[in-house]
Design a binder for these strands. Structure first.
Lengths: 198, 198, 198, 198
DNA sequence: AATGAATGAGGTTTCATTCAT
DNA sequence: TATGAATGAAACCTCATTCAT
């Protein structure tokens, strides 16, 4: 049964099918599974993606683009920016994103693929966070920090909080602890109370 | 060429051979490589380890035991404990440990194995760190924190700092940023200056 | 981008494109490569050639026709024919031809195609050479020989000399040895000296 | 159904099975066919031969060794050597050999394998024939010839005669014509009569 | 307990040919 | 007649695990 589609449509079908399966089954997904889900023949897959890793790369690019679009409003800094909200808002966004990705996140960021095809450094989350830290410092809102390693740390805590929630941790508590940490890290004032304990 | 050894000795030889190779070559190591290194036959491997993942589990247990032994002095809390040094000392220890593990760390903590055989929750680093946080709070040294999610966060930043150093980041800067974060997180006082920037 | 051409013109474009690529890349050429070179669509290929082997057959026919045209003057026997020159001239022509064909020769004469589609016997070079031998004998110029197997032998030595030259052998020496062999084979007189050794 | 054999025996079984199938079906034989014939599992094949071409290389080495053994008596030159018989005897031997090899000859000497894994030059038949020509010249038996290209020519005619016979040509006539050519080529005397025509 | 030959499911990729438009 | 997206049958190779000796 031959289904003729415009290349972009067919490519998208494969991409979407793969995303769906990867969310559910993570690294266990194979080319065979994807073409079955996309109602395409095996060879069709290779018309659009030269290798399996090329598919993952395309999905990663899509997800990052989605994420950047969603984050843009938060990152449009100006005089009216409420710096107290920037990192918590971003963290919430990322946690939603990762949480919604299920096993896809694993396949893209904790697998052989991650080693074979590392992201270009400037696209990595840690680098973006370092830029935000710099901007906050420049705006006089954040304390003095070393942006690059601090970006790495912020990336780590957000990431791990998302993973913990995926693994079953209580979301409210996890996120409260995260927000507290972020606040303490970047602001010079006295400590905030942690929600759950107060 | 048959070499009869006491079972435990033979088991240990395999374990040590595997550790050595995993450090050097990470997830690329195969059963064949291990038995060659251990000068044992392939079947012998399966006398001691039912599956490859069981070997990894045994190695993980060994590494964790080593780590606990090394951490014991730091964690022997008493009236004389200098709480300012506990987390930095522990972080330094862990970073040394992970850094020295090379590809073994990847194989144990960022691979399919990690998903197939999650550690029992009470053995996880995050749980230990939660206990420390509790102890610090009980001793009146730490600020009020939610121990469990905070343990997760501390674990994440230490872990990630080690990974960044393994991947080539500057150790002094990374560790300074980490220490700063840990200090800000658990102490209620005014901010410390970050080493590299001061 | 649809280009309507007279059928024969389109067919010729494909043929010429294939020849060009086969010369350069031999058996590694694919249908995709040919249509790209001919600026035609893949399906168009199959409008003109039912299978890949049919293309090769068409090319083979073309090459043989070219060759026959080039050989015609040499083979126009008459009272004025210098029989000493017939075989060397033909050999030189063939060697030029094969040498100039590069990988095309391999694709046509040393590949699966050769086995799948043997040439009709009467078209084969060996058969033509047998005819020449017969003519030479009839003219009283050549010694008594068994034309058919001798045609096979002459074909073999010319062919192999060309292959050797393609593979890097010294052309002058190879051709001198060939001419010497051909002379000794068909003439009854005393041996010639071989150029390179004299 | 597991059949445990000594490695040499199993390797030989695979080799023999492959030879048998290659004789019958030439380049159409696949790994699957060989293991079926050898009553082995697919993986077993790769225990003994890293790639398909390695199998062919092993078979080629075997065949060449067989051939050298069979040719040794003919090539043990001494004062008693009858130089008139050397080349015809060798030719007869080779023709028998090639004829008996069927499609194996094609797979080893006229296929992609031949291009991927060319024989070391000194092992090639043409080189051996060049040595024989030299020896014959040194013994004063052969006329003056250029050994290397002449070796190529002799190899070609023997080879082609065998192929022609495989393809259905009359063996007696083919071999008579070959012997005549070889005689005329290497000896300075007047022509011999060709058997079939005399 | 030790050995190592044997297994075979599983995975990726290629490419001549087909056929809906 | 032309197009080019779609097909799917091969084909090769890996490697954790089994089991006869």
């Amino acid at each position: 049964m031959r289904r003729r589609l415009k290349p972009d449509a067919r490519r998208l079908e494969i991409l979407v099918a793969a995303e769906k399966l990867l969310k559910r089954h993570g690294t266990a997904v194979r080319v065979d599974d994807v073409v079955a889900e996309a109602r395409a023949a095996k060879g069709t897959f290779y018309t659009y993606f030269a290798t399996w890793d090329d598919l993952l790369e395309a999905i990663r690019a899509r997800k990052i683009a989605e994420l950047e679009a969603a984050a843009a409003p938060i990152l449009a800094f100006g005089p009216a920016t409420d710096w107290r909200k920037v990192l918590p808002a971003l963290a919430a966004l990322l946690i939603d994103f990762i949480t919604a990705s299920g096993g896809l996140h694993e396949a893209l960021f904790h697998s052989a693929f991650t080693r074979n095809r590392p992201e270009p450094p400037h696209k990595r989350l840690a680098a973006r966070l370092a830029q935000i830290v710099k901007a906050g410092m420049a705006a006089g809102a954040y304390a003095k920090l070393d942006p690059e390693p601090t970006g790495v740390l912020i990336s780590a805590v957000i990431h791990e909080t998302a993973d913990a929630i995926l693994a079953g941790a209580d979301r409210a508590r996890s996120q409260a602890a995260l927000d507290h940490l972020l606040h303490r890290l970047v602001f010079a004032d006295s400590p905030t109370e942690q929600g759950r304990l107060s």
